[in-house]
Design a protein around this nucleic acid. Structure first.
Lengths: 228, 228
DNA sequence: CTGACGATTCGATGCGGATCGAAGCATGCA
DNA sequence: TGCATGCTTCGATCCGCATCGAATCGTCAG
């Protein structure tokens, strides 16, 4: 009876609401600071620090200090996989969440993953880009093609400037609702900024929902057509 | 930020050592009784009962009562998937396990379940009967059809006499080794008696193994053919 | 019917751990 | 240097929950 890997130890780490919220926040793939994670989880910095220590000690997170900030990220894709499976089970587990907010459909269609577009529309956008060979997908690692750079310039995004920053230009970001990838990275952020600038959509306060207007949605679909 | 599925609720269920041990014990796919799971987890029956209620309520287990026993099994392959991923992550940090070895093959193939046939052959027999519409399965409640009664008479089992007793004629009986049902009840007993009478198989002393001879096995498969 | 056994419920106990306040350390900026 | 900011450590508190003893219910055997 005492045999087998210690699954309880890992699961207990995921079992605390504060820690689970932190991990869910990191599902986007980007690293966040301890303070951001504390706010995300709704706890004080002291408590968050304790949680983050436990998570890194348990091998679920990797930490790295940079100046006076402490950045944390998921330890690997296996952790993200595990979280996704958990979300899948929790979804049909019947128990709906306590807060009956605006709720799923809008979130599922379009939401922000920190600073870029996620949800069905986010996935559709990346699909469209790869279909037209504007973005290349080499085993999960994304890169902008020459044609893609031209497209972006025409769209109002100067990729030369973006590539200069430390942040990767393109990043495949796993989507929990659709179970496919959408576009993250500096380019993903720039594209979402364009969506806002063109008034195709606006961010709903206090929520992650990105609300598209009817003409905005049509324009979006025209700019990023999906194959039949 | 309270968005997304409630992963903490599920993870917390897996986070208790006793519950984790129970789930690990069920990874083989067999259903186990509450008492067996209590022993497996190293807790008293009272505690185990509480844990099992939580797990079923959380959608991770399905329970089924049979006589004075309560059988529990994993709710589905998604749960098994999740556990497997957890084990994969838990393996990294530490102590290995010695997986409970492959169960005795003979027990798995054919054994007695009280007085009727269980194991792979028992399941195959019930499958064959339902496939040929000799037995009807209405949501887990089995009944013999008119054609079935004719088949049994030709096979040497007089069902009219059996139906007179207090014991139900047909009963779906959950199989530990395979996660499916085999035929119990008075008819199940009568059929196993026929198997003995025809010398297709004999009971091994001091064990639950039902040992088929080579020609006996062939005859059995001919009498209860499985669909291709 | 009676006795035995397995499963469950109830109530009480005790421990682990989440949480926060206060203080201690680093780093960055003027 | 001095001050502000962000993270961590320490100590104390408090709640949740796993655990078990005792009792109850249901099923099976005789």
């Amino acid at each position: 009876m005492r045999l087998g890997p210690d699954i309880a130890r890992i699961a207990a780490l995921l079992g605390d609401p504060a820690r689970a919220n932190m991990l869910a926040a990191l599902m986007g793939g980007q690293a966040l600071t301890a303070g951001e994670l504390a706010r995300e989880a709704g706890v004080t910095p002291q408590t968050a620090s304790s949680h983050l220590a436990k998570l890194t000690d348990g091998g679920l997170l990797t930490g790295r200090r940079q100046g006076r900030h402490a950045y944390f990220a998921l330890a690997g894709s296996e952790v993200a996989d595990l979280l996704e499976k958990l979300m899948g089970l929790a979804d049909r587990g019947g128990h709906q969440r306590a807060r009956p907010g605006p709720r799923e459909p809008a979130l599922r269609q379009a939401r922000v993953c920190y600073d870029h577009l996620a949800g069905e529309l986010g996935v559709a956008m990346l699909d469209s880009l790869t279909d037209r060979a504007l973005v290349e997908d080499r085993e999960g690692s994304l890169s902008l093609t020459a044609e893609g750079a031209g497209f972006m310039r025409a769209f109002g995004v100067e990729t030369a400037g973006l590539a200069r920053g430390r942040r990767p230009l393109c990043k495949a970001c796993l989507d929990w609702s659709v179970r496919r990838s959408h576009l993250g990275g500096a380019l993903g952020q720039a594209l979402l900024d364009q969506v806002y600038a063109r008034r195709w959509a606006r961010r709903i306060e206090g929520s992650r929902v990105v609300a598209f207007s009817a003409p905005g949605l049509a324009a979006f679909r025209a700019a990023f057509p999906s194959r039949p």
